[in-house]
Design a protein around this nucleic acid. Structure first.
Lengths: 328, 328
DNA sequence: TTGTAAGCGTTATCAG
DNA sequence: CTGATAACGCTTACAA
């Protein structure tokens, strides 16, 4: 910048004014400065800019579980779009359900003075972090603090899915999900239990599988369910997220027993599958969009108490969930 | 930091030393400083750190087409993993094949002084940018400059795919891809032509569809091909990327004429599809990994001439590409 | 309309 | 081992 000033024969401040489009610069002077900037290929150092100006670095921090999961990449897409619209950049980091990594990443983002954090939390406590940086929690509520939150209607969606299976006469309905340490898994289990309860169907604890996390583990769990003796075998399965649904579909492909499945979260090519997948789904793009809207509202100075938003889910009937109970 | 110094009764520089683990601080002093840092919840301002220290902000910039495309999200995942390993953060931006947006984003990243750029370029010229920031080009070569590059074996992969169809007796093989303004589309078309040529099969220009970009457009194009009169209709289709493959599969689902399809790029649930998808695929995670390795090599001071890496492709036979030509 | 001086939060230099 | 001082590249406040 000093070079530009010298080349244009003006002071630093004048260059600064031109760069930031501030008024009070003669047309001829501005011209000379612009020319010098172009000639020298000068680009303002945003780090210095932010440091001096205080406040915003025009950057958002987004913490998710895993970019390669379409559910999260849709969230990333939404936040990116919103950020671009406001001239913000986005730092994304995947924490793979590791609270310690999550804390480290939040620290790194805060040291870089991101303006706001959007967090799909693996459960780390961010109480102290939020005192200086506004944050919006996505998909799971924060622990230990109160903050803006955008969640799915997990229990409602799960209930809807199970009701759909019950309505077709299924009684032995299995539940396959992550460990109950996951908040969403707990919520969806609650929805499953509520639906079973309301229908007066007793839950067989053998049919509740809350261990698998990865796809292969889900496949194994479902294969286990399918090899139960006829009377104890489920006639339908509710897979509580996209990984478990994929796992279940793989198991059913290898052992086609005419078992119905409904998943939670949509699948990329659900309509092209051998048995098109019936799912209950929320809209992850919408979640990301709403979270960004919240973040910007806070950055624009909104002061009120934490806001909780719940994104609805809907049932998409495609075939896999409409298989009638087999006569055992 | 001043507060910390005061609270610990030392000078700024001593605090700085403790924070950065520099030697030359008495154990007792260090203890006091550490305590003060914890008590005040102090976090170093990395912006100021970078400004003063010069050089790295420990941040990488990654420009891709679209995060929600699994091909790109795998690249993001790989770069994220590599970045984390070195303590770097990653700013990702999707440019949707818009060269102007790409230029803007590069400028924004450079102003923030990212240490290196990884670019899936829509064709913008980055000649000037690269004079100060090392860059690695992914999936497509740079225009107007020479730089480190990680590409897929596009022509080879396409050729392999078409040879696979030819080997089964197909002669009327359609080619469906993006416009030829896309470098990858051109390369894959070249591979298609080479395979046809080598087999002595003349290419029917009616069967070469290089307009569709989005999935629906690909579906329409393929439906168009399928409604050609029997003698002119293709008996096989080569879909030159994942979007076109999905489009083709949708068209074939709606009009099941026993036409073979091979795609370029793998699909998420290829094995679970009604007709499991035969594809030629490169490994996008590996591409991202290699690009990150290149970037860090440059950051570590490697000086040599630009390096070009080519990631191989392999054919995955699953069913959709093994349908014999229908007797017309 | 333009310029000067001070300072954002940190680190490098060099003296104590 | 420790600290004063200048400087990183920029902007604000206040002159001129």
């Amino acid at each position: 910048m000093r070079d530009v000033a010298q080349q244009a024969g003006v002071s630093l401040k004048t260059v600064s004014r031109v760069i930031n489009g501030e008024p009070g610069v003669g047309a001829a002077t501005a011209e000379r400065v612009t020319a010098a900037i172009a000639a020298l290929g000068f680009e303002r150092n945003d780090l210095a800019h932010t440091l001096r100006r205080g406040g915003g670095s025009a950057t958002l921090g987004l913490l998710i579980e895993d970019v390669s999961n379409p559910f999260y990449s849709s969230i990333v897409e939404a936040v990116e779009d919103a950020a671009r619209e406001r001239g913000y950049l986005l730092i994304t980091a995947s924490c793979e359900e590791n609270p310690e990594l999550e804390r480290e990443m939040v620290a790194a983002l805060r040291r870089r003075r991101v303006d706001a954090l959007l967090i799909v939390s693996a459960g780390a406590d961010h109480g102290r972090d939020l005192r200086t940086t506004p944050a919006v929690f996505l998909d799971r509520p924060p622990v230990g603090v109160d903050a803006d939150t955008v969640l799915l209607d997990n229990a409602g969606g799960a209930r809807r899915a199970v009701e759909h299976l019950l309505a077709q006469g299924h009684r032995r309905i299995a539940f396959v999900s992550d460990r109950a340490t996951y908040w969403t898994a707990r919520q969806r289990l609650a929805g499953y239990e509520a639906a079973m309860d309301a229908a007066g169907v007793e839950v067989d604890p053998w049919l509740v599988r809350t261990e698998p996390h990865r796809v292969v583990e889900a496949t194994e769990a479902v294969l286990g369910l399918l090899s139960l003796p006829a009377g104890r075998r489920p006639t339908a399965i509710f897979a509580a997220n996209n990984r478990h649904m994929v796992g279940a579909l793989r198991a059913l492909r290898d052992r086609p027993l005419g078992v119905a499945v409904v998943g939670f979260d949509d699948l990329e090519l659900a309509d092209l599958l051998a048995t098109p997948a019936t799912v209950v789904r929320g809209d992850p793009y919408e979640m990301g969009r709403l979270a960004a809207v919240r973040a910007f509202a806070r950055l624009d100075g909104e002061q009120g108490p934490p806001v909780s938003l719940v994104v609805p889910t809907d049932l998409v009937v495609r075939g896999s969930g409409e298989i009638p109970p087999a006569v055992l």
